[in-house]
Structures are given as C-alpha cells and as structure tokens.
C-alpha cells in the first residue's frame, strides 16, 4: 500500500529510531530554548536569592564578624527557597498544554525525560545560584579564599535540590494553590542537603578542609539522580490518569 507522505513507522522504524538519551537531550534543549525566550523569569530566582541574603544584615546586624558566622546558614536557606520558587513552574505549562501527555505517550522512557527536566531546572537555577553565591558570601564577610568551596558546594547541593523538588512538583500537578504544599513536601526531604551544604560552606569560610561534607552532598546528588526521576515519572503518570 502506498500513499503520499511518510511511510508508517514499522517499515522505517530502525532508521528513524531516537535513543532515550537523544530524546532526553531534545527535551533539555526545548526547556532551555523556552526559558531563554522568557529571560525575565530566568532572573527571578536569582533576584530572590540576592534579596533574601540582603535581609539578614538589615535584620540582624551589619557587623561582619557576626554575619560571617551566619553566612552559611543564610546562603543555604536562601538557595533552598530560591530553588523552590522556580519549582512551581517546572511542570505547570507542560501539564497545561499537553506536553506531559505527549512525553508519557512518546514511547521513550519517561524517567529519562524527567531527568532532562530536572537537568534544565538545575542549569537555569542551581548553576546560576552557585555562581552568585560567592558574591553573597563576600558581602557577608567571607574571605576570598572560600569562593571555590562555596561554588562547589552550592553547585553539587543544588543538583540534589532540583531532583528532590521535581518529585514534589510532579505530585502537586494540577492543584490550584500548590505553593505552600510544595514547600511542605519538599523542604523536609531537602534538609540533609541543607545540613551538609551549610557545613561545607562553613568549613570553606573557616579555611578548613570541606571535602567530607562535599562528598556527602555528592552522594545525595547521585542518589537523587538514580531515584528521583523514577518517582517524578510515576507521579506524572498518576497526574495524567
């Protein structure tokens, strides 16, 4: 049987097949392209992060010695909240316009596509936060020597945050006011990241070896990479039922 247009898949399936990694790469590219079409929204978590760190000197004291002591806690609390802020929108548009449906029916691994979405979230919030964190730390009295440690710990820790957050975002899909609930679901699960991350930052500021907590953060990130996309994929499927 022949007709104009393309042939049906079985005949050309092998030649046309897209691997799971290829599909995930396209999904990542798509999210990045979309994000750069709306640059204004990209800046929001960063501005939020900056203003939260600004609150502390104003609310507590401008003395650098006191601020330096608080700096790790301030940085990590602000980073956690900024990452959370962007999460609410992780799936919202895709759920609304049917993209998630198409992902779930693509014949590709939904887990791989969820991983791509978390990767995009990290590239758009986690990585910029990691690059901005040293500036905030310097303004809170941290020495310049601590910059490398701070960048490393926020960069690694935010990987875990993006992944944990994707589960919460997928579970609250379709709710009208999901912001508070999303925090309630995500924050308790994120506490280990906060603990290890703040410790690594604290050691870096004190000029001591921060490798041990950094490795623990790395372990959390690896665990997140292996398990979180699975859970997020399950949650997305449930939301489509």
């Amino acid at each position: 049987m022949s007709a104009p247009g393309v042939a049906l898949a079985p005949e050309r399936a092998a030649a046309l097949a897209v691997s799971g990694a290829g599909a995930a790469w396209l999904a990542l590219l798509r999210d990045l392209t979309l994000a750069f079409r709306r640059r204004g929204q990209l800046v929001q978590p960063l501005a939020f992060f900056a203003i939260v760190t600004l609150l502390f000197p104003l609310a507590v004291s401008p003395e650098l010695t006191r601020l330096r002591e608080m700096a790790p806690g301030v940085l990590w609390t602000a980073a956690l909240l900024a990452s959370l802020l962007a999460l609410e929108f992780l799936f919202r548009d895709d759920a609304y316009d049917g993209t998630l449906e198409q992902y779930a029916l693509s014949g590709q691994s939904l887990t791989a596509l969820m991983f791509a979405k978390s990767a995009a979230h990290w590239l758009l919030t986690g990585l910029p936060l990691a690059l901005m964190a040293p500036l905030a730390a310097l303004s809170l009295g941290a020495p310049a020597a601590a910059v490398a440690g701070i960048v490393a710990s926020v960069a690694v820790g935010s990987v875990a945050l993006s992944l944990i957050g994707s589960i919460g975002a997928a579970l609250t899909l379709g709710m009208k006011r999901s912001g508070a609930l999303l925090s309630l679901l995500t924050l308790p699960l994120s506490l280990p990241v906060l603990i290890f991350g703040a410790r690594a930052t604290q050691l870096a500021i004190a000029g001591e070896a921060y490798l041990a907590p950094l490795e623990l953060l790395g372990a959390l990130a690896v665990l997140g990479v292996t398990l979180a996309p699975l859970a997020a994929a399950a949650a997305v499927r449930i939301s489509l039922e």
Binding site: L26, D93, E101
Partner: peptide, 22 residues
C-alpha cells in the same frame, strides 16, 4: 494541541516529533 506559544511552529514540531523519531 501540544504546542508552545514561545516556540515557532517548526521548533515545536522539531521537539515534539523529534523526541520520537529522526
């Protein structure tokens, strides 16, 4: 239709269909 307003029609198809086939 599962299309994004911020992408061109061509880009939309490239991503939507491209996830499934070359």
């Amino acid at each position: 239709p599962p299309l994004k307003g911020d992408l061109t029609a061509g880009e939309n198809l490239r991503f939507w269909v491209g996830v499934r086939r070359r």
